[in-house]
Design a protein around this nucleic acid. Structure first.
Length: 277
DNA sequence: TTCCAGGACATTT
DNA sequence: AAATGTCATGGA
């Protein structure tokens, strides 16, 4: 969670994670910290929202940290996998941290396309602070990701000013328009026959290729077999783990991952984790 | 300085 | 169909 000091959509402070989100027309600031007996505790910081909002916030956290998944089958599979074996030991208990908002997941993926992560975080911060809403609590700003309705009405120049490439600006405004018009939504994607169909639908959209589609399937739609196989981060992580002289080819990765089944998303997340520090 | 980043798409062979 | 060029900037 503390990967980037430039993260603007949540804040880690003294063992708690602070985040702001909108539910039932209420904007609530909450924090998640360690409770008793290995539980997570969710506390509301600025106001006490109505009960239905409290319940939905708990569900949000449940999904955000993927608490529903039983990791034991993953670990027993990984035990006998040469690539995953040490990863699951090093990061035992790690769960996929989601990006629950579809628009945010799409935008973040596009911002990260072929660019270093540091700069991607800078772009995200500029985007959020230019077009998002915030609440302020004790001199700290807590931002909401901009809504598609706002972004859909921007011009390419508006985003180019923030140093988005004109291409990226075009993609993001295009997706915002699809979401504003209800053509694209998380619900629609989740209600398709299977994730393969959702992937196809995503790839039809201008700016979304196989990498972006799988990134969004992994972090937002929670497809357990999502696997952005072209991802440079995966390539580097595998190279590092196996002490290879050069990055593995796609064919080699297919070989290495052939036993991962429905745990490819988790394998990916553990590989990404190994790139930090 | 050069090379490459959590790619996608348009243009050329 | 497959290779090549383009986008834009920061960091190593």
């Amino acid at each position: 969670m503390e990967r980037s000091t430039n993260e603007c959509l949540y804040r880690v402070h003294k063992g708690s994670i602070y985040k702001c989100h909108q539910i039932n027309d209420e904007t609530v600031l909450f924090r998640v910290c360690e409770g008793e007996n290995g539980t997570l505790q969710v506390e509301f910081v600025n106001t006490l929202p109505k009960k239905s909002t409290r319940i939905l916030t708990a569900k949000f956290v449940w999904n955000w940290f993927d608490l529903e998944t039983d990791l034991r089958p993953f670990y027993s599979m990984a035990e006998n996998d040469p690539l995953l074996k040490s990863l699951v030991q090093n990061y035992f208990g790690l769960r996929i941290v989601g990006v629950e908002d579809l628009f945010e997941a799409l935008c973040w993926a596009i911002m990260g396309q072929q660019i270093n992560l540091t700069f991607a975080y800078t772009l995200k911060r500029r985007f959020v602070e230019s077009f998002g809403e915030k609440i302020t609590y004790k001199d700290q700003d807590y931002w909401l990701f901009p809504r598609p309705e706002i972004i859909a009405d921007l011009s390419i120049d508006d985003l180019a000013k923030l140093q988005f490439t004109r291409r990226k600006s075009e993609y993001i405004i295009g997706m915002a328009t699809l979401m504003k018009n209800g053509i694209l939504s998380k619900q629609n994607l989740l209600h398709m026959n299977d994730f393969k169909q959702a992937e196809k639908e995503l790839i039809k959209i201008k700016g979304i290729g196989p990498w972006t589609a799988n990134y969004v399937l992994l972090r937002c739609l929670k497809d357990p077999s999502a696997f952005p196989i072209e991802d440079v981060g995966i390539h580097n992580a595998i190279k590092q783990q196996l002490k290879m002289a050069q990055k593995p080819s796609i064919e080699e990765i297919q070989q290495l991952s052939s036993g991962w089944g429905n745990w490819k998303a988790y394998a990916t997340f553990y590989l990404w984790r190994s790139l930090i520090e």
